[in-house]
Simulated scan of single mutants.
Amino acid sequence: MKAAIKIEGVTKRYGSAEAVREVSFALSPGAVALVGHNGAGKTTLMKLMLGLVRPSSGTVSVLGENPAAGQFAARRRLGYLPENVSFNAALTGRETLAFYARLKGEPVARTLDLLDKVGLSAAGARRVGTYSKGMRQRLGLAQALIGEPQVLLLDEPTTGLDPALRLSFYEIVHDLGQRGATVLLSSHALSELEERAERVIIMDHGRMVADGSIDELRRIARLPVRFRVRPRAMPLSLPQGLGPVRPASAGWLDFEVDADRKIEALQALVCGGAPAEDLEVIPPTLDDLYAHFLRHQEPAA
């Protein structure tokens, strides 16, 4: 499948500081999570893809074009939601979307339907200055969706959204990915991304320290699997080397095993002399993987 975005050996310097250092990856249709602490290089990468800044070295290609070129026609097929959205407070929600639709050369009437998609149809006639932070975030998402973009860059997109609207947002992202769009999500909300991103890129101090699906990252990290067990009888009987067992919530016990001993532990708990009354198997989370790759990266030269 042809990559919509190609980053090859890209470094971006601001004076002596390297915001991005020797980063390479290619993005195909689907949802990709870009994660890292503040200053890891996530926003700089998005600015490079948008053509807002030029790489100090390396190449950037978006939909087959160089975004830093004078005529970046592919920009009309891009959608972007910055971390901090800002609109003219004197305009209404409808007027704001109409303004951005004209900038992109899209039909205004069809664009205004996006207000309903993000739950703002009832507030479309209100001035943006009266909107809450969550409402401005939804308006920003509607702006990013104008023209059904082939590439959608979203920087902290769910900030200020309530749980129901977050769910609706990820349904929109999933639908876009199914229709062939490439969606790049930069967020600190790792638990939200875990089940929704097909791929995760982890950044640290401008360097890419991990890249792959959640399952691939788990295989690379080889972190232990956590078991939470409600035993029928005590003491809990486990094969030698599994444990140690420690109390969790009332009536439950926790222990960890290496990933390659997960089946052995399950067999002991289900088929042993005193089977467990209930159990949960908890694989390493994205938070666990993120912490692992930051701890175990190679030191910078």
Score class of each variant (00 low, 15 high):
L48F: 05
N84S: 01
P67M: 12
P239I: 13
L167G: 13
L141M: 08
A210R: 08
P244N: 07
F87I: 10
T159W: 01
A259S: 14
Q267A: 12
R136M: 05
S191V: 10
F227I: 05
L286M: 05
M135W: 02
L153D: 00
G79L: 07
R77V: 04
A197W: 02
V229C: 04
I172W: 04
I220A: 09
K262N: 03
L52W: 01
R219E: 12
S28T: 10
C271A: 08
L34I: 08
A90W: 14
M46I: 14
P247Q: 00
Q143L: 03
A17R: 14
Q150N: 02
A301K: 12
P107M: 04
L114Q: 11
P284S: 08
G147K: 07
T44F: 04
I5L: 14
R230A: 10
G177Q: 11
A122E: 13
P163K: 13
R261I: 01
P55R: 05
G79S: 11
D175Q: 04
R196S: 01
G140Q: 07
Y290N: 09
L50T: 11
S191R: 11
Q71P: 03
D113Q: 04
L120I: 07
D113Y: 00
A4S: 12
D211T: 11
V128N: 06
D204G: 11
N84L: 01
S61D: 09
L27H: 11
A301C: 09
S121C: 05
L115K: 05
A233K: 15
S237K: 15
R261A: 04
A69G: 14
L266Y: 02
R230D: 03
E256T: 03
G64D: 11
V62S: 07
A3K: 05
G79T: 08
G212M: 03
L193S: 12
A301W: 10
K6Q: 15
D254S: 15
N88S: 12
A68Y: 00
V53E: 14
G180K: 08
G36V: 02
S249G: 15
P239V: 06
V60S: 09
R102P: 11
R21L: 12
V23T: 12
R21W: 05
E256I: 02
L279S: 02
N84C: 00
D116V: 13
H174E: 09
A98C: 02
M203W: 02
V62Y: 02
K117A: 12
L48G: 10
S86K: 01
D215Q: 13
A300M: 10
L34R: 03
M234S: 08
A250E: 11
P149T: 02
L154I: 00
A144R: 01
G273M: 15
E280V: 08
C271R: 13
S186A: 11
N66R: 06
A98M: 01
P247S: 01
L34E: 07
L91W: 15
G9M: 01
M1D: 14
Y100D: 09
R228N: 02
D211Y: 04
I202Q: 15
M49S: 04
R222E: 07
P239E: 11
E277H: 11
G36P: 10
A233L: 14
A125P: 13
